[in-house]
């Protein structure tokens, strides 16, 4: 059990998302950074898809109301447990009464707080993720606010972890150091985020000059961005002729271009359908990079192919399997 101490209600309960209800207009929701969510769960011995708390705004504080193991993944928020520094991508045993504080991030934009056993909220339409638009799922269908008490699912495994947990905890190397990509220097300086994009249906309908700037110019993530989508600012994209699509299914990652010419990347809370023209799709394997890109930072699109995009998914799986092996080793070493 933990209690939310922070006043800004932007954090939410998420798992890997809600499948199979797009035909009823229900988008997938789920963690913006699925890699971080899964890794946090794996560190604790939870199923990958267990629910955790997504935190996009700092500082953020919770109080532990019982002894429980927890993991922190995603952004490096200079975390402190009762004032003692805790590394990012790390798991620890908390004692009743301790306070976990997440500070403004040094790297990344979203933190995931996972609890041993997983966050215990009802499964609605197959998922524990918060469906903000439909006001269901997650914690009472809304973001978390001050005073909310979140419970973990009790499980046999959890006691074992609690008893045998190393006092200093353990952790893994964050994926941005393991899965580098794009302009390494820019990444090191934290100035740009690079994501791979597969051209979509209306790609060929844009002026040559627009396509040129789409790939080669920076796109600023506007302050008007959230879990629904990132609105980008840059040179307006100009279609060769007026485009008006019939409404059709879309998925997180689709880059729509409204008539203003300023693209919007659809994200986890996005509608499952739309009608604006689509210039491309940020590939699933890179959506976690977007999730960790701060507002007002610059984005670059890198053209990719379907085969490369499928291979990139395997690379993400390989990373998670490494985390899995490491967590197993720690468990064995504690026996």
């Amino acid at each position: 059990m933990i209690e939310i101490l922070s006043a800004i209600p932007l954090s939410s309960v998420q798992d890997l998302g809600r499948d199979g209800y797009l035909r009823y207009g229900v988008g997938t929701s789920g963690a913006m950074d699925r890699l971080a969510l899964a890794a946090g769960n794996i560190l604790l011995g939870n199923p990958d898809n267990s629910a955790a708390i997504e935190i996009p705004f700092f500082p953020f504080e919770v109080r532990f109301l019982e002894d429980i193991a927890f993991a922190l993944t995603g952004a490096d928020a200079a975390a402190e447990l009762d004032g003692h520094a805790m590394p990012p991508w790390w798991t620890l045993q908390a004692r009743k009464g301790q306070v976990l504080r997440l500070n403004p991030t040094r790297r990344g934009a979203r933190c995931y707080l996972a609890l041993a056993g997983g966050v215990n909220v009802p499964v609605v339409l197959g998922s524990r993720s918060t469906q903000l638009r439909g006001e269901f799922g997650g914690y009472c269908g809304r973001n978390l606010k001050q005073g909310d008490v979140i419970r973990a699912i009790q499980c046999g495994e959890r006691r074992e972890i609690s008893d045998r947990f190393p006092a200093a905890g353990f952790g893994v190397e964050p994926p941005e150091f393991v899965l580098p990509q794009g302009d390494l220097e820019s990444i090191a300086q934290g100035t740009r985020t690079f994501v791979r994009v597969l051209p979509a249906a209306e790609y060929d309908c844009y002026e040559e000059a627009s396509l040129e700037s789409f790939w080669n110019k920076d796109w600023k993530i506007s302050a008007q961005s959230d879990r629904y989508g990132y609105r980008l600012e840059g040179l307006a994209l100009v279609p060769k002729r007026t485009l008006e699509q019939r409404s059709h299914g879309i998925v997180p990652g689709v880059i729509q271009v409204p008539p203003s010419g300023q693209p919007i990347i659809q994200l986890r809370d996005a509608q499952p359908s739309g009608g604006y023209p689509k210039i491309g799709t940020v590939i699933e394997a890179d959506l976690w990079r977007l999730a960790q890109a701060d507002l007002c930072t610059q984005l670059r699109f890198v053209k990719t192919t379907y085969d490369e995009a499928v291979a990139a998914l395997d690379t993400v799986d390989d990373y998670l399997n490494r985390v899995r092996r490491l967590a197993e080793l720690y468990k064995l070493s504690m026996r």
Partner: peptide
């Protein structure tokens, strides 16, 4: 068809 958001009808 349904789409856009939960329960929305085209």
């Amino acid at each position: 068809a349904l789409g856009s958001h939960p329960g929305y009808c085209y």
